[in-house]
Every structure is written in C-alpha cells, then in structure tokens.
C-alpha cells in the first residue's frame, strides 16, 4: 500500500477518531464486552454488519470521487455530470443515479442519502457526520483537492469522506474499503484497551487473528463499487443501534460514540 494510504489509515491522523469507540464503550457499559474474547466477538459482529456497510459506502465514494477527479478536466462527461447536478431534485436525483447504473451521475448528496438510509440510529448518524467533518478538515489540509472542497457544504457521513479522500490520495475502491474496515476494528480495539485496561499485546494478537475476516469484508465491499448505490449492502445490527442511543444519553462516558 502507498505511503499516502498508510497516512490515511493511521490512527494518529488528526481526524477525531480517538474520541469515538465504534460502539465499544456502549457495549462495555452494557456488560457485553469484558475481556479479549468478548471484544473479539463484538468486533467480528460489527465488522461483518455495519463494517461491511461502511466499507461499501467508502468504496462507492471512492469510485465516484475518481470519476469527479477525471471530469475536472473539461470533456464531454463533465457536462453530463453538471447537467445531472443542475436537475437535482429529490426524485430526479435518484433517477439519475439509477439511470447511470454505475453510481455515477448522481451527486454526493445522493450517496450521502444512501448512508442516512442505512443508519437508523440518530446517535450514529451524528457520530458519523462529526467524524466525517473532522476527517474532511484533516484530508483537505494534507491533500488539497476541489473534489474534497465540494464536500464541505454537505457535511457528509464519514465513509463518504473517507472514500473521496482515498481517491485523492491515489487509492482505489479496494484500498478505500480496507482503510474503512481497518478503522472500524482498530478504533474499537484501542477504546477497549483504554476502557478495560486490557493487555494491548493480547488485543493485537486477537486483531491479527481477525485479519482474514477484515480482508474478506473489504473485498466484498469493494465488489459493490460501480454497482448502483441502491444495491449497496445494508446489514443492520439492532443491538449496536440500541446501545448507541443509550450511550448518547449517558452521563458517564469517555467517548462520543
């Protein structure tokens, strides 16, 4: 993987991730995570549900951003894209997306709406947009691009920004999905180390054991890139949603989400 993408995946990227536990603190509070095996089971469950959804959205955003980067040079495709944008209205946007078939032609707001539709929990929507905003600030500083600038007014979901940033940093949909999957797992694991005082060596050994699943989820997610956005995975995790809402109203908490 290129150095740019490693920078993007690094937990030290100043993009606010350290204040989010990816559902781990809510699960710790609920008594569902107490040690390394229960942490691993939780991460596995989250990875193959909301992790897959996040990675697929990131891969889709990556493909769209790559297309946008291409159309920034004046050619025939650019005028088509602009035409689709000027006719944007709620029903028509979706129609443009379906008609294009490849998720290209609908604007960022359509993809962002697809992320909303897959995130029923208001607390998780807030957390995703907050992390998206922070990530956008960091990546615009590191890799300035008009494609990233165009996302600012939308305040998009985190995977949308991540996918676009991966494209600007030179990666494709598979890299976007991998970075998304890695963030899903490593952020939660780090939070568990801090919250429960778990042995970081044991936690990382467990993560290494999860690497095959992480790769499989990233590959599956990347496989949706280029398909209509409506078809992207939408795997739900009801307990994750419930715990996220409880957490948002808890008085004692260390992490935003």
């Amino acid at each position: 993987m290129d150095a740019s993408l490693l920078l993007l995946a690094d937990a030290r990227l100043p993009a606010g991730a350290h204040a989010h536990s990816g559902g781990v603190e809510p699960a710790v509070t609920a008594g569902a995570i107490t040690d390394v095996p229960t942490l691993l089971a939780f991460l596995h469950g989250r990875l193959t549900t909301s992790g897959l959804v996040t990675a697929a959205l990131a891969a889709a955003a990556n493909t769209h951003a790559t297309h946008e980067l291409g159309t920034r040079t004046p050619d025939a495709t650019a005028s088509n894209t602009i035409a689709a944008h000027t006719h944007s209205g709620c029903g028509r946007r979706a129609a443009a997306n379906v008609a294009a078939g490849a998720g290209v032609g609908g604007g960022w707001e359509v993809l962002d709406g697809e992320a909303d539709a897959r995130t029923p929990s208001p607390a998780q929507r807030r957390a995703s947009r907050a992390q998206g905003r922070s990530l956008l600030r960091a990546v615009r500083a590191a890799w300035p691009s008009p494609v990233l600038d165009a996302l600012v007014p939308l305040g998009p979901h985190h995977p949308v920004v991540l996918g676009a940033a991966t494209a600007v940093a030179g990666g494709g949909p598979r890299e976007a999905a991998s970075v998304a999957v890695f963030g899903t797992v490593s952020g939660g694991a780090s939070a568990a180390v801090r919250l429960l005082g778990l042995d970081p060596l044991a936690v990382h050994a467990a993560l290494a054991g999860l690497a095959d699943v992480m790769d499989a989820v990233a590959a599956e997610a990347a496989g949706y890139a280029g398909r209509p956005w409506a078809e992207l995975p939408a795997a739900s995790a009801p307990v994750l949603d419930l715990d996220a809402e409880r957490h948002a109203r808890a008085n004692l908490r260390l992490f935003e989400s």
């Binding site: 030290r12 990227l13 100043p14 993009a15 606010g16 991730a17 350290h18 204040a19 989010h20 536990s21 922070s134 600030r137 960091a138 939070a191 801090r194 919250l195 908490r253 260390l254 992490f255 935003e256």
Partner: peptide, 15 residues
C-alpha cells in the same frame, strides 16, 4: 469528549 485521552484532544488530534 476526549476518549480517555485529554492530552490527545488538545495536542495530537485537536479536531
């Protein structure tokens, strides 16, 4: 909220 790392929130990752 600082995710158990107050120094991170004012120094390393100020977002």
């Amino acid at each position: 909220r600082t995710g158990a790392c107050p120094h991170t929130a004012i120094r390393d990752d100020i977002s």
